[in-house]
Amino acid sequence: MLQAISLSKKFKTKEVVREINMELLAGESVGLLGPNGAGKSTTISMLSSLVIPTSGDVLWNDKSISKNPEPLRKTLGVVPQEIALYPELSARENLAFFGRIYGLKGELLETRITEVLKKIGLSDRQKDIVKTFSGGMKRRLNIGAALLHKPSMLIMDEPTVGIDPQSRTYILETVKQFVEEGMTLLYTSHYMEEVEMLCDKIYIMDQGRIIAYGTKEELKELVSDNQTIELKADLFTANFEKALGERFPKATLRIEEKILTISMSKSEEPLATIFAIAAANNVVITSAIVKVPSLEDVFLHLTGKALRD
């Protein structure tokens, strides 16, 4: 079991992680959600023993990792956000390098490399130089390099950043398979759907703090009294937005291109009023959808901003 107890980290005067408490049980898949700059990567670095916390502690099987991180490191695989590979070497050479670093050699090393290449779907490209790979293939190899020593726990820091949808799907399916095989997973992302798909338990982070945690269902309960209405129009005028804000002062409004998203209490029956305000402000609404709460709504409700802002 991996535990973070009142974990804080300061870089000079900037406090990037504040009093975080987390728990990761064996076989669990946990998501860490938060926008850029929320403190996710620093939290992961402290949990994986790379960064020393300013205060608080990380426990692995009830023992602090500050003095002896070895037991944790032996069972831990970390997939960093960066492509931590040598671009001039082939896929196989890269894996051989990281395998040797973990003390694997000879036939055992070769067998593990072959297994990992198969797992990440790069067997047919194993001899190719990494710099010739697509973004998705590099990401897959980046994951592979963390699997060579057969870790029982995997920490993944936004492993699908900047890749095409096809590669993303492949990576998500692969990670899902790891979870099904019983691997403990800590997965950070700012893509809600990824965390929803892979994780049983979710921590939501903002400005260095955990602002909510629980299962998907528990988190959605937080906004069960809310509703989200998505309106489409060719043009939303400033007057229309202002009039809506005055009429529904507790609602959260967000415009992205031609879509206006309104989050408000379920107790209100707003559609007729919204159409009336639109007509009064010469806004022609082409569609209106009332949506059930999602994790995106949870985040919006908790922080007042969208996850990818």
């Binding site: 790379l50 831990l76 960093p80």
Partner: peptide
């Protein structure tokens, strides 16, 4: 250090 290879090596207890 920039690419993260350094951290990977540290995690391997080098």
């Amino acid at each position: 250090k920039r690419t993260g290879v350094w951290n990977r090596l540290k995690l391997a207890s080098i």
